[in-house]
Write a protein that binds this DNA or RNA. Structure first.
Lengths: 348, 348
DNA sequence: TTGTAAGCGTTATCAG
DNA sequence: CTGATAACGCTTACAA
């Protein structure tokens, strides 16, 4: 039933176009046209070729196609990790939208390493992908590289961190929601707010700096000794509580870098016998799937919309490299759940 | 068909090896050897070439390399989704292990569609990847295709579902842990256990069938009307509770397909004012990061070990296609947390 | 140590 | 409508 092509070792080899040429008697050109739905070939011939191909299991070699065509129909997505559910959910959305547009997605996880990021960008922009969606590493050390890619006409879109207005990008308006959250905390009696997560006090970027700005604006205090910096991930809770236990005090309200951080905090709080929000108020970010389960107050972004916007910007850039730079800010929504409440009585 | 990157005349083009030839005066061969760390080139020449390359930003075109070399140093990973944190965590581990071995990873999300899976396998095995790690779709409709890939000498490793012993694969010994969990439930007074998740009563595969077997063995009852089938994901809770509310009763203990399912259940239980485990006992699977936060009892698998084993099997297959089939069963561990407890008093 | 040239599997351009 | 044929950018024998 199936015609198999054998090699010297008498194992069936994957068939190539040569086998199809031999089998059908048509030329390479005809076969190529048949597979690409191009004009210049009769419907009957195409059918015959495709049928024969199906029989021997022929599929045009993608590596050869990519090479010859000069494009890959592949979009590279560069993220720091997948442990933060925000990223895995975003990737899934991006993959979905890309697939709809006839593109496949390829993911690189940088683990926040600037060299990994740089290698990936250089490699992927050189002929692995047609465009890149990048959540740039915090340090901003690769900005020159982004600039270089841009100068070569290679389409990139930056996420969350924009580095000025020179690159296409998508940004979330966290500030508005964070302000609402802080006002709520203020209303229920909190004066001081700590931060747990990525970022430190040296670089004026990211959520921490948003928080500092807003606290000043609202005339609230920043709980610096209660804050834990440069941490993001599932160890956040352990790190934070060991610091607080050492200090003999813990903050009454904590704003975190991400839901992952917040959930980790929540989880260790519970296992230490604390009650949320009675003993401590926690605020997350991104409304990850698990946030609802623990009743985490957080910031919600429509990730499906976000993915569509990102891909739309990327496609616009691929279509016309000289279009003006597009930076889009997406709205977000405050999600109030059980994890925030009045200041602990004893601490007031 | 695909949008092409527009190449204006007045924009810097990405440099190719021709530019290097012109710039350095060396031949293509020399340049290739310089970039591949091969012998047959002087150290001085190599330095000169690499320096020049760095200056003009040259990077060997990966598409051309892949094509010419006949391999890609890329491993394809085919998973149903990333919404289930188990998969995103597994992917991250696999990516890590692959990277260590000099391979990059590429992810396809099938959304449990057999055609998406089939297309991906055909495409990727034809020259996008050197090997595939597949969590096969439940229906098993593509087994013939796996067989075909195998007959072509293309390395694949199957996860979780093995379809006999014909393919390399990695399997988790869920049964042992599930038995312990059921014994625990029995001890605290449960007689009937329901199932919520993927799978249905027709096909004798997966967790549900493990559960049925074990219930018989332990002389416990299966709560069929309390079970909810063919669901997995964040809507599980809503679906389950709407069914239970309609029926006017709900099960006292539920075994779920995954932590994602369990957490969804948990989350909706809480928002309906129920208390866990007072009103209902829930058992998950895979000990996802968020499981700890809600105190979910579950089954833990060492995902880092799992990734290493998978990649090891794949590499063995890539090295020697005629090695005997390897199927490895990984142990798992019961994680008892707060989500399981005695039968509700009123229901006893 | 270096240069030269064949060829990988396609697509695209040209004649027929 | 069809079939040769020339690239595409690289790797790798082989020649110098």
């Amino acid at each position: 039933m199936t015609t198999e092509v054998k090699n010297g070792k008498n194992r069936a080899q994957r068939p190539t176009f040569r086998d199809l040429v031999k089998l059908t008697g048509y030329s390479q050109g005809a076969i190529s046209r048949a597979f690409n739905g191009q004009p210049g070939i009769g419907e009957a011939t195409r059918e015959k070729i495709l049928k024969a191909a199906r029989e021997i299991g022929y599929y045009p070699n993608p590596a050869a196609r990519n090479f010859k065509r000069g494009y890959t129909s592949r979009i590279g997505i560069v993220l720091p990790n997948l442990g933060n559910t925000n990223y895995s959910e975003l990737y899934e959305q991006l993959d979905l939208v890309n697939a709809k547009g006839g593109y496949s997605s390829i993911l690189a996880i940088t683990h926040d390493s600037e060299t990994v990021e740089a290698d990936t960008l250089l490699h992927w922009s050189a002929g692995e992908t047609d465009g890149l969606i990048i959540n740039p590493i915090v340090s901003g050390k690769n900005v020159d590289l982004y600039r270089k890619l841009k100068s070569w006409g290679f389409p990139i879109v930056l996420l969350y961190r924009l580095f000025g207005s020179e690159f296409d990008g998508v940004y979330i308006d966290y500030k508005a929601c964070l302000r609402q959250a802080l006002i709520y905390l203020q209303d229920v009696g909190h004066r001081k707010v700590a931060y747990v997560g990525f970022s430190n006090l040296r670089k004026p970027v990211g959520k921490l700096w948003l928080l500092l700005e807003l606290l000043k604006e609202l005339e609230m205090e920043f709980d610096e000794t209660g804050s834990v910096f440069d941490i993001a991930g599932d160890e956040a809770g352990i790190r934070a509580f060991s610091q607080w236990n050492l200090q003999g005090r813990r903050p009454t309200a904590v704003v975190t870098y991400s839901d992952q951080t917040a959930i980790s905090l929540y989880s260790d709080a519970v296992s230490m016998g604390l009650e949320i929000p009675r003993d401590i108020s926690i605020f997350g970010s991104d409304d990850v799937a698990g946030a609802k389960a623990v009743g985490l107050s957080t910031i919600r972004v429509d990730r499906s919309l976000m993915a569509r916007v990102i891909v739309d910007i990327l496609h616009a850039r691929m279509r016309d490299f000289d279009a003006p730079t597009r930076i889009q800010t997406l709205p977000c929504e405050l999600v109030l759940r059980r994890s925030m409440g009045p200041v602990p009585k004893s601490k007031k």
